[in-house]
């Protein structure tokens, strides 16, 4: 069980694809103007990641080492095509909003990185779990960044939720404040870079705090007497 625990910790925090590995930054920075766009792309990426991790793990003993990268890319590409067609069919408006960034999931280095570094060396179940956790870690960052930018930029949260969840979500939009002058910087690409930088800084700050606390605790370890009593 502890193997799964480390996998979960790696994906969500210690080796987070967006905050630590800094992979897949292009879609991350491009589509996170709103929470829903971020969530949509995050879920799509997660689905591709799980599918490709499982498949790569299944064929890992059949595929020869020399040609593994092209095989991985083809596996990923077929899953991306599946997801793209599914989104086209069921969440058409979101599909239009995300545009080119759905097919571009193919080039997301986080996916081929996990296929190469983990799935091709492990059994199916851990590989699938790794896909879930890495995808979740990526999605959480996308949603956080999308939330920051949407809140600062337009003063709303969850706008356009019906694009992803259907007509149930028509009135999910939370208007935190209404403004005549949207803060365009947050919605434009520079806002994504600044927000991403702040998120990474926050993660590093928390890590430093934790490390500092741990060393303090270590210092309080009771000494064992090694010299013989006289």
């Amino acid at each position: 069980m502890s193997e799964y625990k480390t996998l979960a910790a790696d994906g969500m925090w210690k080796n987070n694809p967006a905050l630590v590995q800094l992979l897949g930054l292009c879609p991350l920075l491009a589509v996170t103007a709103t929470v829903i766009n971020g969530l949509g792309l995050g879920l799509a990426t997660m689905a591709v990641l799980i599918g490709s991790n499982v498949t790569v793990s299944l064929v890992r003993n059949i595929v020869r080492n020399e040609i593994r990268i092209p095989i991985f890319v083809m596996v990923i590409a077929s899953f991306v095509t599946i997801i793209q067609l599914l989104m086209n069919a069921f969440t058409y408006e979101l599909y239009l909003a995300l545009g080119i960034f759905i097919p571009l999931i193919v080039t997301n280095c986080a996916i081929i990185g996990r296929a190469e570094a983990f799935a091709s060396k492990n059994k199916v179940l851990p590989a699938a779990f790794d896909g879930v956790m890495m995808g979740l870690g990526f999605t959480v960052v996308l949603v956080l960044l999308g939330g920051m930018r949407e809140l600062l930029g337009a003063g709303t949260l969850l706008s356009g939720a019906d694009r992803l969840f259907g007509p149930v979500a028509n009135n999910w939009t939370v208007t935190v404040f209404a403004t005549e002058h949207p803060f365009l910087l947050a919605i434009l690409p520079p806002g994504a870079f600044i927000g991403m930088g702040l998120l990474i800084a926050a993660k590093n700050a928390i890590d430093q705090r934790l490390a500092a606390r741990q060393t303090k605790q270590k210092k309080q370890v009771t000494r064992i007497r090694v010299t013989a009593e006289s």
Partner: peptide, 8 residues
């Protein structure tokens, strides 16, 4: 920052 955020 102001110019690209609030061009009007």
């Amino acid at each position: 920052i102001l110019l690209i955020s609030f061009p009007v």
